[in-house]
């Protein structure tokens, strides 16, 4: 058995791409909220909870849907290990805005519950019934070396079959999701897959 990258997906401000194929274009440079809604429609998702989520969780959920939406990946043999830079900055600012004035002090539970970066992992787990380990590491850019070390160790030491890994980061102005599905596959069956090594992030150009 060998760990390979089976699939990949990317959402950037101009395109949503699955395994190299463009799923949604954003030629008119819609703002994040509108653009994410377009992707939601294009993927034909029926998941009303999506509209309650903050931008970071919406982005992570959509990218995961593009990655594994058409497959059967659930349960405790799949882990999620993600990198992120700005944590929940957008929701953090919203929460601070609600408590900026002592006379008009209205923090909202619906905002506060999104003020942690690992909530996006929780949302992915709920949607796909994934019950394995999930961890969120903070990094300025995708640190493929670290993620590769961590994920490889999960496959070796804890017998995971699959792991969603990559980098998801969101601010209103700047966002990116690059996700990879790593899986333990038979060495002879590696044709349609990609090498999982310390530069696995290069699979997405």
């Amino acid at each position: 058995m060998e760990t390979r990258v089976l699939k990949y997906a990317e959402i950037n401000s101009s395109k949503a791409i699955r395994n190299g194929e463009v799923v949604v274009d954003n030629p008119s440079q819609l703002i994040a909220k509108e653009y994410f809604k377009e992707i939601y429609m294009a993927l034909d998702l029926k998941y009303p909870k999506f509209y309650k989520m903050d931008g970071l969780c919406q982005l992570a959920l959509l990218a995961t849907e593009m990655l594994i939406g058409d497959g059967d990946y659930k349960g405790d043999e799949i882990a999620i290990i993600l990198g992120n830079k700005n944590a929940s900055l957008s929701s953090d600012k919203q929460h601070y805005a609600a408590i900026a004035s002592k006379e008009n002090y209205f923090p909202s539970p619906a905002v506060f519950v999104y003020t942690l970066p690992n909530i996006m992992l929780g949302e992915i787990c709920i949607k796909h019934k994934i019950t394995g380990e999930n961890s969120c590491f903070m990094m300025e850019n995708i640190d493929a070396d670290f993620l590769h070390t961590y994920v490889s160790h999960l496959f070796e030491a804890d017998n995971y079959k699959y792991c969603i890994t990559g980098f998801v980061d969101f601010t209103e102005e700047n966002y990116i999701a690059k996700l990879f599905l790593a899986g333990s596959v038979d060495s002879s069956d590696s044709e349609a897959t990609y090498k999982f090594d310390k530069t696995f992030n290069k699979i997405i150009p």
Binding site: A87, L89, L116, P117, N134, C136, F137, M138
Partner: peptide
């Protein structure tokens, strides 16, 4: 300095470590 990754940088430099540090944020 609000960035969680900047904490790693600050502490790694302060203690003169060769490792730049990793930050885990799992609630």
């Amino acid at each position: 300095r609000v960035l969680l990754s900047s904490l790693a940088k600050t502490l790694s430099v302060y203690f003169g470590l060769s490792h730049s540090g990793v930050v885990v944020s799992n609630a």
